[in-house]
Design a protein around this nucleic acid. Structure first.
Lengths: 254, 254
DNA sequence: GAGTGGTCTAGACCACCTC
DNA sequence: AGGTGGTCTAGACCACTCG
């Protein structure tokens, strides 16, 4: 007999480090403040840089830190509440939604999108890229897929500038029966990452919306939100509460 | 003159590795199949194990792989579509929702929850832990917070077994005016991780629901879903589409 | 050019599961 | 006992930003 340690639960170093840093963030640092660099922090805590980085990665995932290559690590502001749900019964691109159109091409849809649309993978679709900014920050990028036969009245040859508005205009003439959404975790593809000002592989929340008209899926939107800075809100209720939660810290932090 | 390489875009090794593995997963492996172990894979691709692991981590994040210590790495099935939204106008715990009650205590609410409830941080709240399983897998764990003054008619001394049902029964007597939700990325705390059969720090989707009755927030639920295995669905529309998307691969993979 | 975070290596040991 | 993934180390070099 004899081991003095009873029920040791050997908490990983990086995990303990994370909680220590999180506490320090709450008590000793202000939003936007720059932390000491990684080599210095690692030395200060007596761990290898890789271990320190493991802790920082988690804190960044939880939206508490922001790291930029060549610049440094800063304390992130609380996540922004980004409204996703409440514009129920509205087509994308309808008056005054938060999106800005970037471009539009007509091409074959990716397999997964074709499945969601219920069309042939070969069938061409109008693909509109849009971007959503909030408080001067790019928070989401979206690809909106509209099968050509959803908007049959569309004229054939369109200038690039006129293409997206024309597709949206045709779309708006249809009766919108409903929409359903799904949210899942993903990692930013190279193209999306650039739009979001992040590195490829950054964690994102992918919101897939299917727009239904007359019993058919007439459009699918795949929106990619920065997971580190965004909290997606679904205002299902018709009620409004006097309590503005705009600047609250979310509940996800561990 | 000089450097022969023009516009080199030095794609990181782990990134390239990830795409190679993803393709192999699609073409050469079946769901549930066990991959070669990490040391072998690293050797086969001529990289260090840490680099190989970086690629596997991303694939696990995207729900394409499942890794279990002491066992191995297996090909994950497509993410489950988990319904979160459509039970609009229903109290939690009402007949036949997918949750199972684990326990209930009365204690002070965490600061973040108190803020969402709009109550004093010191005010005691009933805290009900529930768990949601799907296809034999634990997919979510939830803490439902009900301030004591939301259910004033509740008798004082309750047996642990009778506690949660009594709170829910009282809650159901209130008129439900509406609810709103938020989704954000988090990492599993130790306690949640155990419920979800994951390691602490595993990526989770945190769904915060506020239940409103008579202009006040009378309950708050913080549900923690496994981000690797779940795709959260919000059936906002009243329409049903003939196309069952139960077993589709999601759109988040890069 | 100096300093930052991002990538990569080649090892070691540990916790866990299965046989 | 043997094999798996999880943690950790001590270095190196690279890509990027900024003064």
């Amino acid at each position: 007999m004899g081991t003095t340690q009873l029920e040791t639960v050997p908490e990983p170093k990086y995990w303990h480090l994370k909680t220590v840093l999180a506490d320090a963030l709450d008590s000793e640092f202000a939003v936007g403040e720059i932390l000491p660099n990684e080599r210095e922090l690692a030395a200060r805590f007596g761990v290898a840089r890789a271990t320190l980085r493991q802790a920082l990665e988690q804190l960044e995932l939880e939206g508490r830190l922001q790291r930029r290559r060549g610049v440094g690590t800063t304390v992130a502001p609380p996540r922004m509440g980004v409204s996703v749900g409440p514009s129920q019964g509205e087509w994308p691109g309808a008056g005054g939604d938060a999106w800005r159109t970037i471009g539009c091409v007509e091409a074959a849809a990716p397999a997964a999108v074709a499945a969601a649309l219920g069309t042939d993978p070969e069938r061409p679709v109008h693909t509109i890229r849009r971007q959503r900014t909030m408080r001067g920050q790019s928070v989401a990028t979206e690809l909106l897929y509209v099968p050509s036969d959803s908007v049959p009245a569309l004229p054939g040859n369109l200038s690039p500038a006129a293409h997206a508005p024309a597709v949206l205009r045709e779309l708006h003439t249809l009766p919108l029966a409903g929409e359903d959404r799904a949210v899942e975790l993903g990692s930013a593809r190279a193209e999306d990452a650039k739009q979001l000002d992040r590195l490829p592989g950054a964690p994102v929340l992918v919101v897939t919306t299917r727009y239904v008209s007359d019993g058919r899926v007439v459009a699918v939107a795949v929106a990619t939100y920065r997971a580190d800075t965004c909290r997606l809100t679904f205002g299902d209720s018709g009620v409004e509460i006097t309590h503005h939660d705009e600047d609250e810290r979310g509940l996800a932090a561990s």
